[in-house]
Design a protein around this nucleic acid. Structure first.
Length: 223
DNA sequence: GCCCAGGTGGGTA
DNA sequence: TACCCACATGGG
């Protein structure tokens, strides 16, 4: 059974990779920038996040120290294009305060902690939920953690590979217990799911068309 | 003008 | 615990 799931998951990966090619995630440079991007992209289209990051970069605010110092109302102005800027400014402040306390603002010092410990620490930060924490672990710190998002649930529910009431942890476990725990694989897989979710398994169109997953069982979302 | 986007936390039953 | 909602900009 486990082997069957593993075969299916690897087969899906292969089809997606063949169709969309390497995605080169995360589209950012440096661990800190990835982490900031992970917060800014919460329920937000990436192009809007990029605008915010460009603003931050322009005035060299992409460092723990600088972001600690900048007044909140200024920070809000910088990140405005990414939406939810009042909330996100608070989240960014909370996050850099955590970093300065936990690792003296030095991302390299996070290396000494094991993945489970770091995940626990991240989840304790207000504004960092499971997807954001896992994105940071995988894409900033290169830990083998599978990132689940809205696309993951929609695509895999539509192809009847997970159940409608599967939560974050259960969905994540489906991938992590049936796939080799490899950073490169998890990195590419999640990005490919986003690609197919954007292009085919859309909310408003329950039918696959030339979806690369059309050979898998498929139907409208139940529940 | 309407829908959606790489979520999260707080409130209510 | 399980929903429901606010949070906000920008593109299609």
């Amino acid at each position: 059974m486990k082997n069957k799931k593993r075969r299916i998951l690897l087969s899906i990966y292969k089809k997606l990779y063949t169709r969309f090619g390497p995605q080169g995630w995360w589209p950012a440079r440096g661990a800190f920038e990835v982490m900031i991007g992970a917060i800014l992209t919460q329920n937000t289209a990436w192009p809007n996040v990029e605008k915010a990051i460009v603003n931050l970069k322009r005035d060299k605010l992409l460092s723990v120290r600088k972001m600690l110092r900048v007044p909140s109302r200024n920070l809000k102005a910088y990140i405005r294009p990414s939406g939810f800027y009042n909330e996100k400014a608070k989240k960014l402040k909370t996050f850099v305060k955590f970093l300065s306390r936990f690792c003296n603002g030095d991302i390299n010092r996070l290396r000494v902690y094991d993945t489970e410990r770091l995940r626990k620490e991240f989840l304790n930060i207000k504004g960092v939920g499971p997807e954001t924490a896992d994105s940071m672990l995988l894409y900033a710190l290169n830990r083998p953690v599978f990132v689940v998002d809205a696309y993951t649930k929609r695509v895999f529910l539509r192809h009847k590979l997970i159940s409608g009431n599967a939560g974050y942890d259960e969905t994540q476990d489906f991938f992590m217990s049936n796939l080799p725990k490899k950073v490169k694989l998890f990195n590419e897989y999640h990005a490919l799911i986003v690609a197919v979710g954007k292009n085919h398994c859309k909310k408003t169109n329950p039918f696959c068309g030339d979806c690369p997953l059309k050979t898998f069982k498929h139907g409208k979302d139940v529940v």
